[in-house]
């Protein structure tokens, strides 16, 4: 099913028009979006430090990865709640933008990673070092890549 009519309709909604006409509102949304991203990036670094054994290695993995995982989900919820209203007014142009498409693919990969490997390692807590380190590195790499693609999209848009 082609999505362009959906994006076109979305961009024409009153909701999207109201956001588009208020640069201040767009600024507030973008600011809070960045807060969410900050929470995600910081938490993924904390996770990575624990996965490499640099942070409380004597304690169970879940004691770091569970609160960090919750913070990542909270950051994701904030980013999603603010990202969608920013996307709505420019749904047509953003959806065909190569950088934005890359960001969405990376975001999907990061979310899949979080609900599979990250969750598995947090729950099992007994993964061997290579898997642990892979989880730590993948988390930082994926979320950082999402942030980087977002930056490129902002500055080139």
């Amino acid at each position: 099913m082609p999505l362009s009519p959906v994006f076109d309709s979305l961009a024409r909604t009153e909701f999207a028009t109201a956001i588009n006409q208020s640069p201040y509102l767009m600024g507030v949304l973008s600011s809070v979006h960045l807060l969410g991203l900050t929470l995600i990036v910081g938490s993924s670094v904390i996770t990575c430090l624990r996965c490499f054994g640099f942070l409380v290695p004597e304690r169970h993995l879940s004691e770091v990865m569970r609160p960090a995982g919750r913070a990542i989900l909270l950051g994701f919820a904030i980013s999603l709640a603010t990202g969608f209203p920013m996307f709505a007014p420019r749904a047509v142009t953003a959806s065909v933008n190569f950088t934005f498409q890359i960001k969405m693919i990376l975001l999907l990969a990061a979310v899949v990673f979080h609900f599979t490997l990250y969750r598995y390692v947090t729950r099992s807590g007994a993964s061997r070092p290579p898997w642990l380190r892979l989880t730590g590195v993948l988390g930082v790499a994926l979320w950082f890549a999402v942030a980087f693609a977002g930056c490129v999209f902002i500055v080139l848009d």
Binding site: L34, T38, L39, I40, G42, V45, V56, P67, A147, F148
Partner: peptide
């Protein structure tokens, strides 16, 4: 922006520890 997310994002975990949240066992 990337420097800010990394800097403030990691500092936040130290601040949370000071407040008694987050990684309290460390």
């Amino acid at each position: 922006i990337l420097g800010l997310t990394l800097s403030v994002g990691t500092l936040l975990w130290f601040d949370l520890r000071l407040l008694g949240f987050g990684i309290r066992h460390c």
